[in-house]
């Protein structure tokens, strides 16, 4: 009886300590990066330049689409912009920009200065539309396929590694 209790106690603590040890390594900052595979939401977005609506369902017209959330006031967006410009060269990929909580003029200036990689440009002035995409900060980029399935999420500025990965995926 005593021996049994001893073994049970030891096993419990061994399990506990191993888990605690393994958890020391883990990154505690939450990211939705791995939250992929689901369908893109059905959202109406205001075009940046005109008064009409772009609905996300139209994305099924394209092979692969990259949805990029950005703003002129966002430093990391500035950093990743050249990577977006590079990606805009890819024939298999269409880039949709969603200008997030920004002023029209500032956004225009930004694109004039850094170039416009966006096939379609929309805006989300109060930021509420971004919630439908599960976005919680910018820059954030979502890769979607023809079936409106979310393939990849990139939290933070796109790196060269991300660009290579995207190019590889859209080749198929």
């Amino acid at each position: 009886m005593k021996k049994k209790n001893l073994i049970i106690t030891c096993i419990f603590f061994i399990f506990f300590f191993i888990t605690m040890f393994l958890s020391l390594d883990k990154n505690k900052i939450y990211s939705t990066r791995d939250y992929v595979g689901q369908q893109l939401a059905d959202v109406d977005l205001e075009y940046f330049n005109k008064n009409s609506i772009f609905n996300t369902k139209k994305i099924s017209n394209y092979n692969f689409t990259l949805i990029n959330f950005w703003a002129s006031w966002c430093g990391p967006c500035r950093k990743e912009h050249k990577n977006l410009m590079a990606l805009s060269e890819n024939k298999n990929l269409k880039i949709i920009g969603i200008n997030f909580r920004d002023k029209q003029n500032n956004a225009k200036e930004f694109l004039k200065e850094m170039g416009n990689p966006f096939f379609i440009l929309t805006k989300d002035t109060d930021g509420k539309k971004s919630v439908n995409f599960g976005v919680y900060g910018i820059p954030e980029t979502i890769l979607v396929n023809q079936d409106l399935q979310i393939l990849k999420k990139y939290i933070g500025p796109l790196s060269l590694k991300d660009v290579r990965e995207i190019n590889k995926i859209v080749k198929k």
Binding site: K2, N5, L6, C10, F13, F17, M20, F21, L24
Partner: peptide, 23 residues
Amino acid sequence: PSRGLFILIFLILMVFSSIFIFF
């Protein structure tokens, strides 16, 4: 995490010594 490791090792020593002595 290095602090965590130290405290964890200390904790392990404490707990298993106590278990041993108790039983």
